[in-house]
Design a protein around this nucleic acid. Structure first.
Lengths: 350, 350
DNA sequence: ATTAGCACTCGACGCATTTGAGTGCTAACA
DNA sequence: TGTTAGCACTCAAATGCGTCGAGTGCTAAT
């Protein structure tokens, strides 16, 4: 357990280090106003904090920097994440939500960019995944004799499409009949049940109406991935190269793996989803707390956003462990609330 | 005009420098087999080549490196861009086209990744823009009382969609009537004429059938951007962070602007389009030949791909001016041929 | 418990020296 | 006349060395 004074000192070290990126010495701390302590006293306390694992020394005659455990303690006990965000931040974010953006995709992208712009870290947005969407409509538009566009519309207005080529021996009208069947029997079916329902309920009816059973199955197989669109979450990155401005990424060897990791969307999606499933509204992963090896010197802070109280997406920020935890957490909370509002309006029909 | 011997030497300098990234000295060249010349002779020739502007010296006692003019001469006269690509490259690319990828979007993305993987530069793909597509179908799917999804399908099977919210006082059936009019009157209209045709031909008819003229215009305005989808080309990047492996990007200050430039898709699209309009099938922009200031130490090589002989898209590679011009040009030619074939099949209905 | 004082540590910085790759020039040679 | 060997010269990079100073730990005094 830390004494009050140790907490104060730890907080000061973190706060100072986060802005300066240089080890903090005892003198620096002792010069802080409203802290009538000499450097020697601070030294003693710092030595204790180091022994307990909250601080560390890059080398013997240098100042102290927070350890990952130190950051963790800071985030759990010292940071004030409830106060308001700064006026500048507020106006910046406000423009994001008031600007009339009718394409929801652009909102997500723009959110990532704004998050990065405000923090100089990388902004992440995991697009909304609404789980209880249902099939609204299945359309087929013939292109020529043997190919057509299949269009799926969900109850929330998401649209997915795919061009399919028919196997030899299947005529257009058979396909159209097939689509008719799907529409008749499966409208209103939740999307996540789609695939199984298609197999269970439709197959026999298909067999009855379509000439060639074998071919019908082949065709359904081709359409299935589109129809049963797994509502696959898309991730949007913003300002990944902003991170190159951070001192810890001045060394390309350090920066390359992280940027490279960010390039693979699927990995990023996975990392964000993991946090999205957590109970809390905001999650902070510091260094080795990240399952991803590449991010062992980075922190990932995420927040979920909601539609009708249900979490549907995640926003987040990746940066070096030396991060403005307080500010970033407040920013993310604020933005996630805004997004929740926006998406709720959108999905509940504005 | 260069003597044959000077050409040989220039080619050697470029070839050596491209792989070593270190200034090339006279001794190195003289040691080349099938070139019975002493270092001293090479020195004289090199001095001449420098005087003519094809080589330069980083500092007095260093070897020579090619100047941008030197690269230009190399590309124009010395590179052999017609020979075949290597077997390794061939198999790598082959898997790209034989793998059955039915989503054309993924083909483009994957092409960019493969280009980068093969070169360690950044791969670029400007998605196909087919200019003579026509309106195939306009669909409207109501979501609730005051919003619906508008879906546009073109003759080539491209699908674009948008959620629209109706102004107060416009009922769903009026919207449906409007869509019907558009379908009846404008099916088969080339997409690029869409917007003007909509205004010219439809307005008066709309006014007749829809109750409120003012509102009808407002509504059409809202739909217009989707219908008249400018066939906006999408750009796909691959392996931007691979460039951080290049020696010239070991300095973050050098790398950051370039990576940052690549982050803004619109700028990249513009640069690629510029090259796509050029006459030649492949274009090489070396250093300052790039209009973009950020790329003054980079080279951009592009090649167009075609559908039915008409150029519809661009692929390319961005890297440092010290680039394997020969190999990259051959790669791009090969890949662009493959893409042309693939897209031609796709658009002409396979 | 706090603090002043002091010896000690160690990276950063500046400066001189060395090293070596590479050049330009000159004179000899075919 | 073109080519080459030889040599003095140049300069970046590497190496070594002393200095500086921020910061520490320890001790003794308050």
């Amino acid at each position: 357990m830390l004494t009050d004074r140790q907490k104060v000192i730890l907080r000061m070290v973190v706060d100072d280090y986060v802005v300066s990126a240089e080890p903090i010495g005892s003198r620096t701390i002792s010069k802080h106003p409203n802290l009538g302590l000499s450097a020697a006293t601070i030294r003693n306390e710092m030595a204790d904090l180091e022994e307990m694992g909250y601080l560390e020394q890059p080398h013997a005659s240098a100042g102290r920097i927070p350890s990952q455990q130190g950051y963790r303690y800071y985030v759990d006990n010292l940071v004030n994440s409830d106060s308001k965000i700064s006026v500048d931040d507020f106006t910046m974010i406000k423009s994001l939500f008031t600007e009339k953006i009718d394409e929801m995709e652009r909102v997500a992208q723009q959110t990532a960019v704004v998050l990065s712009g405000l923090t100089q870290y990388t902004g992440l947005v995991l697009g909304p995944q609404v789980y209880d969407t249902m099939l609204k409509n299945l359309q087929i538009i013939p292109l020529n004799d043997h190919s057509a566009v299949i269009i799926v519309v969900t109850s929330t207005g998401q649209v997915q499409n795919r061009t399919v080529t028919f196997p030899e021996g299947i005529a257009m009208d058979e396909v159209e009949r097939l689509v008719g069947i799907v529409n008749r029997r499966l409208q209103g079916t939740p999307m996540y049940k789609m695939r199984s329902r298609m197999l269970e309920e439709i197959m026999h009816e298909v067999a009855r109406s379509v000439g060639d059973y074998e071919e019908a199955i082949r065709l359904l197989d081709q359409i299935a991935p589109t129809i049963g669109l797994e509502n696959e979450a898309k991730v949007y990155l913003g300002g990944a190269t902003n991170m190159l401005l951070q001192p810890e990424f001045q060394d390309v060897q350090k920066a390359q793996p992280v940027l490279s990791w960010l390039e693979h969307r699927d990995r990023v999606v996975e990392a964000l989803k993991a946090d999205g499933r957590a109970e809390q509204r905001t999650s902070v992963r510091i260094g080795i707390e990240n399952d991803v090896e590449t991010l062992q010197d980075c922190s990932l802070i995420t927040a979920t956003y909601h539609v009708s109280g249900v979490p549907v997406g995640v926003i987040g920020v990746v940066g070096p462990t030396r991060m403005e935890y307080g500010r970033v957490i407040r920013l993310l909370r604020h933005v996630s609330l805004g997004l929740s509002e926006l998406y709720s309006k959108f999905y509940n029909g504005s």
